[in-house]
Every structure is written in C-alpha cells, then in structure tokens.
C-alpha cells in the first residue's frame, strides 16, 4: 500500500514503512521528479511558478506562497495515499517541513481524505520508542 508519511522527509518513518512492507510516500520522490527535469533550471528544487499557482487547489491566494508551494508538492501524494503515518511533536521538522502552518494543513488534508491513519507521538524515552515502533508495525501489518 502507498503510505504517506508526515513529516514527509522523515528518515525514520520512511525506513519503518518500507521495512514493514509498504511503499512510503514522502518528500523525496516529488522533489526528485522536479530536480531530474533537465528542461528546468530553477535551482535548487525546480519548484516553478506553476507549482505554486497549482497550490491554489489546496489553499487560497491570501495564503503565503511558501505554504502553497509546499502543498503543491505534498497534496498530490496525500491524494494518492491509501494510508498515513503521522509522527506528532517531532523535534526534527526542518527543511521541507519547516513551516508549521503547512504541516498543520498536511495533517488536516490527511484527515479529510478519511484514509486509515496512525498518529504516534515523538518518543522521549526508550520505552516510548518501543511502543511507537510496535504501534507503527501493528498498524502497517494491519493494512494488509
């Protein structure tokens, strides 16, 4: 199954989803699709004006451009996802996921799609980490 991960650039979630037998949908694929387009020269990510305008599908023009640009990348993946794993309160949320408003919207879009979704809190202790991994494993195995 295609499983959207949030934060979309998380190494840990990407690894666990793949390890437990599913296809993680994260930031890297949609960015690679753009940067490998040799017809564009808009470094570093080849996010184009059309992308940002395309983000209007997810948020109105009064919403800052950086949010619309991000939603233009993640939105289609959320649309394609069959399930999602969200790690809440992750202390690592830099780079692609540096904007809190975008991240809130991503979580909302997942919920609005009504796909199976697991929310796990970022573990603070080893015990919590064990529980988090066990729950992610259980959720992913349950997806069939």
């Amino acid at each position: 199954m295609k499983v959207f991960i949030d934060p979309p650039n998380s190494l840990i979630l990407f690894d666990l989803v793949e390890r437990f037998g599913h296809e993680p949908l994260g930031a890297m694929a949609s960015i690679q699709e753009r940067i490998d387009n040799i017809e564009l020269d808009m470094p570093p990510m080849n996010v184009t004006l059309d992308d940002v305008v395309g983000g209007l599908r997810y948020a109105g023009v009064e919403v800052p451009s950086g949010i619309r640009g991000r939603l233009a990348l993640w939105g289609p993946m959320i649309d394609a996802a069959e399930a999602a794993v969200i790690m809440t309160d992750a202390p690592f949320s830099f780079g692609c996921v540096g904007c809190e408003r975008s991240s809130e919207m991503v979580k909302y879009l997942i919920q609005r799609r009504g796909i199976p979704c697991l929310r796990v809190g970022y573990p603070e202790t080893e015990e919590e980490a064990e529980d988090a991994v066990l729950r992610i494993k259980g959720f992913l195995e349950g997806l069939g």
């Binding site: 666990l16 830099f94 780079g95 494993k137």
Partner: peptide, 27 residues
C-alpha cells in the same frame, strides 16, 4: 541537514523499538 542530524540522534531509540518487535512484544 539539521533534520538529518536530529533523526540520527534518535536512531538508537528506534533500534530498541525494532528489538521489541523482534521479541514479539505488544505496545
């Protein structure tokens, strides 16, 4: 880069979680 650094620091805990999976534990 800061994201990777932060995730790297958390990997030891995730390993403990994977061990628990190996032992067939439940959350």
């Amino acid at each position: 880069y800061a994201q990777l650094e932060a995730e790297w620091a958390a990997l030891a805990m995730i390993s403990r979680g994977l061990e628990a999976c190996g032992r067939g534990e439940s959350p």
